[in-house]
Design a protein around this nucleic acid. Structure first.
Lengths: 224, 224
DNA sequence: ACAATTATGTAATACTTTTGTCATAAAATA
DNA sequence: TATTTTATGACAAAAGTATTACATAATTGT
């Protein structure tokens, strides 16, 4: 099947690369544009683009302008990236038909989640809504986790962490890797934080907590 | 195929040599620069450099400055070496677009792993995930070792040691060589330590333990 | 906007496993 | 056989992890 194309517009190469890496991992085709003019150019020449991720702050032509131009001829979903602190002009965005905002720094998880939510809405494509392993079920649509049929209440981070583990069953994950995926990419906190979260998660999963194995000297692994 | 070029910048010749040795062994071409000015000079005159390893602490022009200069004209991946204790200015690094940090002392393994991870990300090359020899299988993704189908639990060092042996099948390895690869470069402990680890490893590998041959007066060799 | 609640990250401490060293036994070499 | 090198097992030291408590940040309800 043809891959879904996403256009990423940002003047910072690093940011484009970052976004691209995560989307490519999810099997999307990513086209990069370093400024508004190039973005419009790519967009007009490739009718297949399913979604645009647009940085607000760019020299020459900012994200709003690009958005406005595109909206004159297309209803393609647009996600706006806003910098930390930068105020969101929600109203302007609403008028221009922005579908979503994501504040930098963002976690890759959030980005991918938003992208998929929008595409699901627009394309109506169904994605993996449920995950199961060893009696643990995550229902992403309902945002509910159950262990042996019984619902357990997880906090946001715990939920993300468990999801990451279950997405990578049988794979040894270093703390660094976990931090990079579950936390924000620019989070430079203590890797020991993970221990605490793992502990809490294990507790809540009751006897299924032991499915999260400690790999001494390396990190953790989820395995049934 | 053309070798991939890596530029190593450090004022200490010892450190440069060390890094170079390991990278050369992995078939990279290494260019050394002893100060920031020379580094920039080499970099601007050789457009083929695929990655830069940069020491933070250097007289005249420190690593940050070099990094900043390079970032003004290039997106080449940069790994920063920081001394033990020296505080990492993560934020500054992030702004300058540092790709990775490695703290001295580091194990050669870590260094090579980071380099390959970055290059893989940039160049998009895949690495070997499984190794097999004489009924011993190492699954690096799962971090599992099995002997004749049965999983064996290895400690961190045992795992590293076995990996090193299997990477160098049929090659006689001196204790010194083993120390330099599996242990940190600044580990000056007793080479006899290896004997103990080899012993434990042999035990855990059961009858396959004898694949690790003792070479009297020299060291060890893994051979099927 | 405020207080109350909950979630998250950090630090300190307790705990566990791993690792290195040593003493001694065994084996190989000359 | 004397000497050098390696194997082995016990144990102390080091390093990694679990757990708890607490401060701070985020969220919720009023």
């Amino acid at each position: 099947m043809e891959k879904i194309k996403i256009l990423v517009v940002d003047d910072e190469a690093r940011m484009r690369k970052l976004v691209k890496d995560f989307l490519v991992k999810k099997d999307y085709e990513v086209i990069e544009a370093e400024d508004g003019a190039k973005a419009l150019d790519y967009f007009y020449n490739d009718k297949e683009i399913a979604l645009i991720i647009l940085d607000v702050m760019m020299p020459q032509m900012d994200g709003w302008q690009v958005c406005k131009e595109i909206r004159e001829s297309s209803k393609v979903p647009i996600i706006m990236l806003t910098a930390r602190g930068e105020e969101r002009d929600e109203l302007l965005g609403f008028q221009l038909g922005v579908d979503e905002y994501i504040s930098k720094p963002f976690s890759p998880k959030i980005l991918v989640a938003r992208v998929e939510a929008i595409l699901r809405r627009v394309i109506g494509e169904e994605k993996q809504e449920k995950m199961e392993a060893g009696g643990i079920v995550i229902d992403h649509a309902a945002h509910i986790v159950s262990v042996d049929g019984e619902t357990v209440e997880l906090s946001y981070k715990e939920y993300e962490l468990l999801t990451y583990f279950m997405e990578n069953q049988g794979i040894a994950l270093s703390r660094e890797k976990i931090l990079n995926h579950v936390w924000n990419y620019d989070y430079f906190g203590d890797a020991r934080t993970i221990d605490t979260h793992v502990k809490k998660l294990r507790n809540k999963l009751k006897d299924k907590g032991e499915l999260i194995h400690t790999i001494w000297g390396l990190g953790y692994k989820f395995e049934v």
